[in-house]
Simulated assay, not measured.
Amino acid sequence: MSDTPTVLITGASSGIGAVYADRFARRGHDLVMVARDAARMDALAAQLTSETGVSIDVVRADLSQSADVEAVEARLRDDARIGVLVNNAGVSASGRFDRQSSENVQTIFDVNAAAVLRLSHAAAGRFVREGRGAIVNIGSVVGLAPEFGQTVYGATKAFVLFLSQGMAVELGPKGVYVQAVLPAATATDIWNRAGADPSQLPPMMAVGEMVDAALVGFDRREAVTIPPLHDGAQWDAFQAARQAMLPGFGETTAAPRYKAAS
């Protein structure tokens, strides 16, 4: 792997993925851009190559399709130039949980959770053998907030956070850096694709501001980066409260509150 590794970015045709492509290209990294819209990636790749001189490969893949995921897995396993994976591709759907179609629910799971797991796993084996590499997983604050009412999407993002934290524990000592990025509402195409009512959308962070903040966290080697959270001590307190419970999980008798009164 080069000292300036190639970066593979999923969902690279627009939004967060396209901005990541721009920022890494301007840092001098060659790219592998992965998404469904090859035409948009071709246009962005031509622009970035012209402006930065980096080499860019475009891979058309639909990460809801297992065969396409397999092709990207193979690229991650076999291409020793790739040293950074950005799992950004994601989908959502509007509507209450009981009213969403089973097809939409499955697609959200396949793209947001299963593909992230498979691609992370494909990259991790080689990164561990090489003793270096980085995996960036784009989650969401929704994964911490069931109150937001995006049950399936939020559940997949909670999975991404746990997966990232678990990989960090296991792979960090092997030289692999893992970052979970948790944006809040960000001005991307995902809202239109999900069929959201524009009049009901919340205020949003600009995509460039979100990615630039995430890259500050990347450079600092943060495990979890939450660009919209101004009081970082709140996350520290959340983590401390969670970790304080760990000894209690080892108890072998039920808590008194769960025992019938005598």
Rank of each mutant, 00 (worst) to 15 (best):
A61T: 05
A241M: 15
R40T: 04
T253C: 01
A255V: 12
S92D: 14
E170T: 11
A168N: 08
A184G: 13
D68I: 07
G139A: 01
K259Y: 07
R193N: 12
D197L: 08
T253Q: 03
F162C: 13
R23A: 09
V128I: 13
S120T: 12
R27K: 01
T252L: 14
P228D: 06
Q106D: 14
Q106C: 01
R75I: 09
A134C: 14
V58T: 03
Y153I: 05
V224Q: 04
A158F: 04
N87W: 11
S14K: 10
Y258Q: 11
M167W: 08
L229R: 03
E170R: 10
N192W: 13
G143S: 09
M41G: 03
V32N: 05
W191I: 10
G95R: 00
R23G: 02
M167Q: 08
A74F: 09
A214Q: 04
G149S: 03
T49A: 00
D110F: 11
A237Q: 15
F97A: 13
I190F: 04
K174H: 12
T107S: 12
A113F: 11
R99P: 11
A74S: 15
A213K: 13
L229M: 15
W235D: 13
Q100A: 07
N192V: 12
M33T: 02
A168Q: 08
I108K: 03
F97N: 07
S92K: 01
G139C: 05
I108C: 03
S64I: 12
A185W: 13
R257P: 08
A122W: 05
F218W: 13
A244T: 09
Q100P: 07
R23E: 13
L182A: 10
V111N: 02
T10L: 07
L76Y: 09
V69Q: 00
R99M: 14
Q106G: 07
Q65S: 09
V111E: 03
T188F: 01
D219A: 11
R221T: 10
R96A: 13
V105T: 15
N87K: 02
R96K: 13
V32Y: 07
I56F: 00
G250K: 03
V216N: 09
R40V: 02
S14V: 07
L171W: 04
R36N: 07
I135L: 02
V207Y: 06
A61C: 03
D231A: 07
T156S: 11
G248W: 08
R220P: 08
I226L: 14
M167D: 01
G248F: 09
F162V: 13
N104E: 15
V32P: 03
F24Q: 02
V136H: 08
E170K: 10
L215Q: 00
S164G: 14
V86I: 15
T4L: 04
T156I: 06
F97I: 13
S64E: 14
L201S: 06
A71M: 02
T10V: 05
M33V: 05
